[in-house]
Amino acid sequence: MAFSHSHLLGIEPLSPDDINAILDLAEQYVKLNRREVKHGDALAGLTQINMFFENSTRTQASFEIAGKRLGADVMNMAMQASSIKKGETLIDTAMTLNAMHPDLLVVRHPQSGAVNLLAQKVKCAVLNAGDGRHEHPTQALLDALTIRRAKGRLHRLNIAICGDIAHSRVARSNILLLGKMENRVRLVGPSTLMPSGIKEFGVEVYESMHEGLKDVDVVMMLRLQRERMDGGFIPSEREYYHRFGLDAEKLSHAKPDAIVMHPGPMNRGVEIDGEIADDINRSVIQDQVEMGVAVRMAAMDLLARNLRARPKEVQA
């Protein structure tokens, strides 16, 4: 079944076949990226604009490299410093961009749903690079690729997602993706950092790391989103680290070959012990970054194919 979407706004609209299509193509790009000459031409002639309304170094760099390796003309717009500050609305920004005829628009925005809104108003393919607390689909896809390569499969695994679930778009996209691929997902964290209605997502919820990590294949840590908290979610970072930070003792409850993941950037000593993060036998955090580029290349390639296949508007 071919990938038929014109945007990548979230994991929610994707089918398991769509997910496999992206991951399978990404495998090829992993190989390309490890070669000395890392050039493809899947996006040649296309213009990719990265619009980040929220600070990002890693995701923006990853999308930029992905686009450049496939031959796109990539432009970065730091929207925080731009016309948004002068009062321009999101729609006006979109219309302005539309007039520049971009083909791929990569958007990060602090508001949930803002990328969906933009996608309704522009003619190009839109990729969600994270919107508010809603979704971050390429992160979930790169996590899936990392798991599939480390575990040899992406189904019937026990996966614990730990920490600040409430503020995390990464958690939402991962819960949706891992659920669609038929894994058992556990959420571990203090009740104040669990979103409402979470039990209806088909997950198991734990408030203790010992119980939550018992016999899991994958431990996925989340960053404590200090910038999204206006106080009172946790008593202190040291108590949080004591109860929910991943250290060797807590990890010992997981399967002996369990892998440790983190979407970055890490708060060492808050949600994860530095030694575990650096342990090459357990931590796949560096692989996640590598898979990120490949997955983004695959996603943009697939969207570009659909873009090229779309009937062109007749222009005078």
Binding site: S112, G113, E135, R172, P195, S196, G197, I198, E200
Partner: peptide, 15 residues
Amino acid sequence: TSGKFASLRGLPGVS
């Protein structure tokens, strides 16, 4: 309104 839908959409909810 807080609940599954608000969480799925990443919207701040009120109980």
